[in-house]
């Protein structure tokens, strides 16, 4: 699926069946990000499929 990382402004293609697995593949700590699936905020247990559009937002503010 398509994953957009807002902080670094990158897009990636990643396969994962749920949010937890996705964050592991990206080496991201769940405490530091929000995961938005098709414009909706979801938890780590949320299931994902190929057609989902994912956006990852950093919770750390800059400055």
């Amino acid at each position: 699926m398509k994953v957009y990382l807002e902080r670094t402004n990158e897009s990636k293609e990643i396969k994962a069946s749920n949010v937890s697995e996705l964050l592991k593949k990206l080496s991201l700590n769940p405490a530091t990000v929000l995961v938005i699936k098709n414009n909706t905020l979801v938890t780590e247990t949320e299931k994902l499929n190929e057609k989902d559009e994912i956006k990852i937002i950093s919770v750390v503010s800059g400055g």
Binding site: A31, T32, L34, I36, L41, I57, V59, V60
Partner: peptide
């Protein structure tokens, strides 16, 4: 927690 503040501000 910062994550909750960000979630609130997003929602």
């Amino acid at each position: 927690p910062e994550k909750e503040v960000t979630a609130y501000s997003f929602l």
